[in-house]
Design a protein around this nucleic acid. Structure first.
Length: 273
DNA sequence: CTGTTTACCTGGGGGC
DNA sequence: TGCCCCCAGGTAAACA
């Protein structure tokens, strides 16, 4: 499940290889992943160069020399990879972008087919973010802004941290990890956090995400980076996926429950409300 | 506003 | 070996 650290790792990989390379051709094998008509998509890309690659939350923006951006969301199992140009692709590879005079091609692979690629017009970055109601990136959020958003809701911390319009980039895995690091219950109401508590929570959010970025993300099932490399933060997970194992803090058994519609791992002793 | 449910998909695991 | 059922979760939309 690509969350902020995994998307950031992919962005860095693509940036290192793709910038200033020109698109020769585009082949899409499964049309529903495209938000636009395939001919429109192809026409927008062919002949353009990759000028810049941005990330906000879990969205990637591949910005082209014609000012059009390809916005990619990997959802659950999406992968963006650079592979050898002549490599045969499998049945889960839905898009191939060939590069002019280059030994590699960019492919989009997605077992569950939930991911989407969408074009935005010139200056489309701001418009896209407003349209999706995407909140500030988790690594860029200020404590004042987060606290203001917390005070305006009656929802619990799990629901609020996973809400991309509040803070962009956290998914199920890192939300559980962050709440455990902070010894906060996922059921605690966000509006009961003090200013200091919010400050401390945001500090942990950034620390956990940065630590995961430095380990190239978390590979639990499908995630791999742009060059096919696995992440290694799964070795640092303290709570996610650890049902029945002893809490690293107090030794009591880690429980799994459902919060805000998601499988949620907690130590009910350390994370009391 | 808030919470719940469903849809979108496939592969993997449990039960038998 | 195989079949059925359920589960995993990011987002959007429908609904109570």
């Amino acid at each position: 499940m690509p969350e902020l650290p995994e998307v950031e790792t992919i962005a860095r990989g693509l940036r290192a290889y793709l910038l200033n390379k020109q698109i020769l051709d585009v082949h899409c094998h499964y049309l529903p992943i495209l938000c636009q008509d395939p001919e429109v998509f192809e026409r927008a890309l062919v002949g353009q160069k990759f000028e810049e690659i941005k990330r906000r939350g879990k969205y990637l923006f591949l910005m082209l020399s014609n000012f059009i951006s390809v916005v990619v969301h990997l959802r659950m199992t999406g992968q963006l990879r650079l592979v050898d140009r002549d490599r045969e692709v499998d049945k889960h590879t839905h898009l191939e972008i060939m590069l002019d005079g280059d030994p590699k091609k960019l492919i989009y692979r997605d077992v569950r087919k939930f991911g989407r690629l969408e074009l935005t017009g010139p200056c489309g970055y701001t418009e896209f973010i407003q349209r999706k109601k995407l909140g500030p990136d988790a690594m860029e959020t200020s404590p004042e802004e987060l606290h203001r958003r917390f005070t305006g809701t009656r929802r619990n911390l799990k629901a609020v941290l996973m809400d991309q319009s509040v803070i962009a980039g956290l998914g199920n895995i890192y939300t559980d990890e962050i709440l455990f690091h902070q010894k906060l219950s996922p059921l605690k109401k966000a509006n009961t956090l003090t200013e200091d508590g919010t400050y401390s929570l945001l500090k942990t959010i950034k620390e956990v995400l940065l630590a995961a970025i430095l380990k190239s993300g978390t590979t639990v099932s499908d995630y791999i980076g742009a060059f096919g490399q696995e992440g290694s933060y799964q070795g640092s997970l303290l709570i996610y996926g650890q049902e029945g194992k002893p809490c690293p803090c107090c030794g009591r058994s880690i429980e799994k429950m459902r919060v805000a519609g998601r499988g949620t791992y907690i130590c009910s002793h350390c994370q009391r409300i």
